[in-house]
Write a protein that binds this DNA or RNA. Structure first.
Lengths: 142, 142
DNA sequence: TTAAGTGCAAAATCTTTGCAAATGT
DNA sequence: ACATTTGCAAAGATTTTGCACTTAA
């Protein structure tokens, strides 16, 4: 967290046996830069023609597969991506997630530090993880 | 609930100022028939060529707009649709929702009757509604 | 050196739009 | 009779695939 971003991303890529390439570093930097989760179209717009659309798709799926990013669907059903926090181990990754979806600006915020409540299910269901989407207005839009 | 399905759907359509047409009745019947939420591709497959793909899209968006169906995104991000329960007023519709997403069969189950827990948010956020996605194995897959 | 990753072109999906014909009230 | 809805064709958007060239290790 305190190291230079560039080195941090290199480390993440190496740890996941992915080659360190310009496109991947650019995508990670752009995802990290925004406080909220970012969608493929938004990334594409911001990256302009510096990397190919297909490369972006492939980078995002590789990152998702490795658990570097996690994918959240916003209110319109568009996939958005956010860096998994440091505390987000592979275990934890599939566990608790609290996301806030703003109805006005449509941003998705990950509130990892907030603990989720217990969920009770009918008999017969096996529970593996819980995703909570809180919907309303974010601080900027309130 | 006790009336004939066909009449029930006619009533729903009339109440929402939508004309009672064959395509709409077919879609509603098919959604009601399945216990889990159903996706557009699945509906399209089941309906075969009896109604046009475009008509299906339009029916689904009309129903969603009127609050007749609600839309849930499954684990792959595909939109699925389920009938709002009778107790699902326009108010309530935007409130509490507990959905179970099965990792194995990928079905989405609405567990409307289960009460959602209280969610605590950081200062600055205005909460309007909460969607909980419980993920695991449904009774058939457990 | 060589396996992995990139970019381009093209295919495959998925979703929307325009408009004339058909249908419900 | 008239506004709504449908079906078709076509456009637009999104995502995936194949393959030759490039690049990181």
């Amino acid at each position: 967290m305190t190291q230079l971003p560039h080195l941090r991303f290199e480390k993440i890529l190496r740890e996941n046996k992915l080659k360190v390439t310009q496109p991947r570093l650019q995508v990670l930097a752009m995802v990290a830069e925004k406080k909220a989760a970012i969608s493929q179209p938004e990334l594409e717009k911001k990256l302009g023609s510096s990397i190919d659309r297909v490369t972006l798709y492939r980078a995002l799926s590789a990152f998702e597969e490795k658990g570097i990013l996690h994918k959240i669907f916003d209110l319109q059903g568009t996939a958005t991506y956010a860096l998994c926090s440091n505390s987000c181990t592979h275990q934890h990754h599939h566990d608790q997630h609290l996301h806030f979806l703003c109805e006005r600006c449509n941003n998705v915020f990950c509130l990892d530090e907030f603990v989720l409540p217990q969920i009770n299910l009918p008999a017969g269901y096996t529970l593996n993880s819980v995703h909570v989407h809180a919907i309303g207005l974010c601080p900027s839009c309130s």
